[in-house]
C-alpha cells in the first residue's frame, strides 16, 4: 500500500512542463525555422500586396499608349522603360501580378475541387467506378501537359478564361491521384470502419472523416501547382493562346515584346523576372510546407 502511495506521488514529476503542443504548432514552427520557406513567404507577400494595391502603386495607366515614346529604355520616370506601343512597363508588370496570381490560384482551385472529388469517389467506391475514373486520368496523363492545354485552348478558343479552364483541366489528374491514394489508405483505418459499423452515411464519412486527412498533401501539391500553373499560363499567353492584347499579362508581354528584343531587351527582361520570382516564391513555400508537414519527405 505504501509502495502504491509513493508511486502516485511520483506521477506529478513525470508530467510534461508547459502546454501540450499540437501537430499544427510543430509544423508551423518547422516552417518558420526554414529560411528558404520564409524567403518564399516574403516573395509571395510582396507580389500579393502588389496585386492588391495595383491601382494605388501603379505610376501610369497600364494600357495608355504613347507611340512617340515607344521602346524607351528604363529612366527615372519609367523605371522599367516603355514597350512597343509606348506603354509603361512597370505599370503593366504591376497589373500583370493580378492576372497571373488569379490564373494560378483559380486554375489550381478548380483542379483541386474536381480532382479531389473524382479521387475521393474513385477511391471510396472502388470497383468499376475506380477503374473508369482512373483510366480517364491515365488518358489525360498520356499527353504532355502543355500540349493538352494547347489542344483544349484550340477547342475552346484563345482567351484568359479558356486558358484558366485548360490549365485547370490539365492539373486534375495530379490531385485526383493524391486524394485517391489517401482515401484508399484511410478507408481501412479503424475510425472509418467504426463509423461505417454504426451506420454513418458514406458521403458523411467521406467528407467528415476521410477528406480532412488528405488536406496535407493537397496543400503541398496545390502550392507547388500554382507555380506550375503560372508558368503554363505565361507559356500559353506567350504563344498568343491565352490573354489577348491589351491585357497586361506577363507571358503575353513577352510574346509581344520578343520581336523587338534585340533593339529593346528591357521589354522582355522585366516581365520574365516577374514570372520567375513569383514561381520561385511558390516553389520555395511548397518545398518548405512539404518539409514542415511531412518531415519524412524532407528534400
Amino acid at each position: 500500500m505504501e509502495s502504491l502511495h509513493s508511486f502516485k506521488s511520483a506521477i506529478p514529476a513525470l508530467e510534461l512542463k508547459g502546454s501540450p503542443r499540437s501537430l499544427l504548432y510543430d509544423a508551423i514552427r518547422r516552417l518558420l525555422r526554414n529560411k528558404l520557406a520564409i524567403t518564399g513567404i516574403l516573395i509571395m507577400g510582396v507580389f500579393l500586396l502588389t496585386a492588391l494595391l495595383a491601382p494605388v502603386i501603379s505610376p501610369y495607366d497600364p494600357i495608355a499608349q504613347d507611340l512617340a515614346m515607344r521602346r524607351r529604355p528604363p529612366s527615372q520616370e519609367h523605371w522599367m522603360g516603355r514597350d512597343d506601343l509606348g506603354r509603361d512597363i512597370l505599370s503593366r508588370v504591376i497589373y500583370g501580378t493580378r492576372l497571373s496570381l488569379q490564373v494560378g490560384v483559380l486554375s489550381v482551385g478548380f483542379a483541386i475541387v474536381i480532382g479531389a472529388l473524382a479521387g475521393a469517389i474513385s477511391g471510396y467506391a472502388g470497383g468499376w467506378v475506380d477503374h473508369i475514373v482512373m483510366r480517364i486520368m491515365d488518358i489525360m496523363l498520356a499527353f504532355p501537359a502543355l500540349l493538352l492545354a494547347i489542344a483544349i485552348v484550340t477547342i475552346l478558343g484563345p482567351g484568359l478564361l479558356n486558358m484558366l479552364y485548360a490549365i485547370g483541366i490539365v492539373s486534375i489528374p495530379a490531385y485526383a491521384r493524391i486524394v485517391r491514394g489517401s482515401v484508399l489508405s484511410a478507408k481501412e483505418q479503424e475510425y472509418v470502419v467504426a463509423a461505417r459499423a454504426v451506420g454513418v452515411p458514406p458521403v458523411r464519412i467521406l467528407f467528415r472523416n476521410i477528406l480532412p486527412n488528405c488536406l496535407t498533401p493537397l496543400l503541398v501539391q496545390g502550392t507547388l501547382g500554382i507555380g506550375t500553373a503560372i508558368l503554363d499560363a505565361a507559356g500559353l499567353s506567350f504563344l498568343g493562346l491565352g490573354a489577348q492584347p491589351p491585357e497586361p499579362e506577363w507571358g503575353a508581354m513577352l510574346g509581344q515584346g520578343r520581336y523587338s528584343m534585340f533593339t529593346a531587351p528591357h521589354i522582355v527582361l522585366f516581365p520574365g523576372l516577374a514570372i520567375m520570382l513569383t514561381v520561385l516564391g511558390f516553389n520555395l513555400l511548397g518545398d518548405g510546407l512539404r518539409d514542415a508537414l511531412d518531415p519524412r519527405l524532407q528534400t
Binding site: G235, G251, L254, V268, M276, L277, N283
Partner: peptide, 11 residues
C-alpha cells in the same frame, strides 16, 4: 524550375 524556358531562351 521556376524560370520560364521561353524567357531563358530569349535571354
Amino acid at each position: 524550375v521556376s524560370m520560364p524556358i521561353f524567357w531563358l531562351g530569349l535571354m
